[in-house]
Design a protein around this nucleic acid. Structure first.
Lengths: 211, 211
DNA sequence: ATTGACCGACCGAGTACACGGTCCGTTTCC
DNA sequence: GGAAACGGACCGTGTACTCGGTCGGTCAAT
């Protein structure tokens, strides 16, 4: 009781390179790779441990169970994505929001594991009992909220036509994103994703933009 | 030796409604339901057998192994889908092809299992070792071929602008289809899919059509 | 009309294995 | 010396699949 509750976190922040932390992040990286190719269900923690350079018990020392490992992976992804998208500032609005989505996809194209991870997990997580179900619903709803806000802001701004069907555009955009990623995972070298997305955004601009 | 080798087959063809065939199709139906909610990997054949009203051994009498059950399911889906889309005649071309896709989605909305099945299987099958991997690649490539032909026919016809980026439009359309289905599976009552698709098709028409 | 060969439909028990997780012990580092 | 960082052995469960067998029906030959 001699230390305030923030002490532990403070110590970790000042000395982040302890052996355990290295193992932890190595394990997360290994889990990302395996989840992205085999999905969560089919991946065994023994395999993750092997890739990490640990025994299964050693891995379970850092993550009490399999779902803890999964949530660590998801937190990592969420963190890196939102840092890239928003940085420290405000999320972009208007059509700029859609442009930044293209940038995100372009960047993730250089990290195939992250795309595979998302495709696999979000499909598995459609099952209500899946440990990532809640995460996935929250994720989608926050992206929808952001894009909806972006379009409505665009309407007020005069960037977007007043009669643009916001909800459908938002859902379709997310659908294109997810669908292209799925095709890309299935046949990685058959397309660029960015080129296709630009065509889609060109359509949006042409139809609902105030040229 | 008193009968020609084809005799037995002939007899089966004249009496197709034996008890085994009923069990077979019941099993396929049960498998569709379970695959659609739990995916292929996570579904146990014991559970399928239970839903069918058979013992596990009884089920395995009809399907030698789990992958045989899966291919039976996929064949069934492929058959019903192409019957609905093309009937006995020629596949529609030009923009009509895209309209028929909407019709297919509208029809499948009344059969949630089929949408769930497709979402789950095609995500699992991104893994090269998955028993449905080949099927999925073939499926996508045939849909792409059809839509590509449809657009090129539309160009010759004057329905479609000559500089329309065929490949990107095809991939984006498939992406919207898949992505919307995924959202629909995650939250079944949050959208209609058909309304969103109409907005997307409206964009295609406006931008690449010869009004 | 009966018989006997044969077959499809089906079941119960068992096998081999993979997997998530526990328990307890040992080393390493502050 | 105490806690963190591991490893080894073990356990219970789930799973795909095998094996041996039963039962009822079909059909040609008697």
């Amino acid at each position: 009781m001699s230390y305030p509750p923030g002490f532990r976190i403070e110590r970790e922040r000042t000395r982040p390179e302890k052996a355990g932390d290295v193992a932890r992040s190595k394990a997360i990286q290994a889990a990302i790779e395996l989840f992205s190719t085999s999905g969560y269900n089919k991946t065994s923690i023994a395999e993750v441990a092997l890739r990490t350079g640990l025994s299964q018990s050693g891995l379970l020392h850092h993550f009490p169970n399999k779902t803890a490992l999964l949530t660590a992976v998801l937190e990592q992804r969420e963190k890196e994505d939102s840092e890239f998208l928003f940085g420290e500032g405000e999320p972009p609005l208007g059509w700029a929001a859609f442009d930044s989505l293209v940038a995100l996809v372009a960047r993730n194209s250089t990290r195939p594991e992250w795309i595979g991870l998302f495709v696999r997990i979000s499909a598995e997580a459609t099952e209500a009992s899946h440990p990532a179900n809640r995460w996935m619903l929250d994720h989608y709803s926050s992206v929808r909220a952001w894009l909806t806000r972006a379009l409505e802001h665009g309407k007020e701004n005069g960037e977007v036509l007043p009669d643009a069907p916001v909800d459908a555009i938002v859902r379709n955009t997310i659908a294109v994103l997810d669908g292209l990623q799925q095709q890309w995972v299935a046949e990685p070298h058959s397309m660029s994703m960015v080129a296709e997305l630009r065509v889609y955004l060109h359509q949006l601009h042409t139809v609902w933009g105030t040229a």
